[in-house]
């Protein structure tokens, strides 16, 4: 079982059938002595408004996955692979680095990593906001389907590969083959792009793009100037198979 400290502010926990819809309780879980599976089960049972703190995460995998309530979860340390995967609601903050597959398939809510994230961050994310203050590894935003991603540092190669929808903001540099085979996702990069992938091109920054970028940066708590960024997206030349494009793949 999860080792829980006593709630700092308590409600009557003896009356389970009358639990409030919104709680201000806060809980602390020390993973040094309890399994991740129990933590996740507790988080699945959590109700809106609760605040959870996870200590001694020790780089363990699959921390805080599948949360479906408006809770705040703070991980005090490094997370392993697939942290905050399939995140549906609430806010997860990792005061450290995150491993492979951070916020994989996120649906909504926010996931904020104060350090760096490994490869495939926010892969296949359908919605919500993922903020990485540091750098992100290869394949950041791969197959993204509506998620917004803001990376404070650089991102690795093949990021936004087959990205379908959503926005990827990079305040540093982007690695090789950015946006390869991209669909309708939009990419904003402040620094340099090592190379663009197949069918990804630079596109003009219009007022609407400056506005949405400004909102994304503000949501991520950043002060970068939107006009310092360039926009990239699909040339839409590979949307249909055609023999003349056979060398593009």
């Amino acid at each position: 079982m999860v080792t829980l400290t006593a709630p700092e502010t308590s409600t009557d926990t003896n009356v389970e059938t009358t639990l409030p819809a919104v709680s201000t309780d806060s809980f602390s879980v020390d993973l040094a002595g309890s399994p991740v599976r129990d933590l996740n089960q507790e988080l699945h049972n959590a109700i809106d408004g609760q605040a959870w703190t996870v200590t001694s995460p020790g780089g363990k995998h699959s921390l805080a996955v599948g949360i479906n309530a408006d809770v705040t979860v703070t991980v005090e340390g490094h997370a392993g692979s697939y942290a905050a995967g399939m995140h549906q609601k609430g806010d997860v903050t990792i005061n450290g680095n995150a491993g492979v597959g951070l916020a994989e398939n996120i649906m909504s809510g926010t996931v904020h990593v104060k350090g760096d994230a490994s490869q495939s961050a926010a892969a296949t994310g359908h919605g919500g906001l993922v903020v990485i203050d540091g750098n992100a590894g290869a394949r950041c935003g791969i197959s993204m389907k509506g998620v917004d991603i803001v990376v404070g540092g650089n991102i690795g190669h093949m990021s936004a590969f087959m990205a379908q929808a959503g926005r990827l903001v990079v305040c540093g540099d982007a690695g090789e083959a950015l946006g390869d085979s991209i669909y309708e996702a939009r990419i904003y990069v402040k620094g340099t792009v090592a190379s663009l992938g197949a069918d990804c091109i630079e596109k003009p920054m219009k007022a609407e793009h400056l506005a949405e970028l400004g909102e994304l940066l503000a949501a991520a708590g950043r002060t970068d100037n939107p006009s310092d960024f360039k926009r990239y997206g699909s040339a839409r030349n590979l949307y249909h198979f055609h023999v003349d494009n056979s060398t593009s793949y």
Binding site: H126, K145, G146, M162, Q164, S181, Y183, E184, Y239, H240
Partner: peptide
């Protein structure tokens, strides 16, 4: 599938 209508989907 979050894709544009009418494209060849891979």
């Amino acid at each position: 599938r979050t894709l544009p209508v009418g494209i060849d989907q891979r």
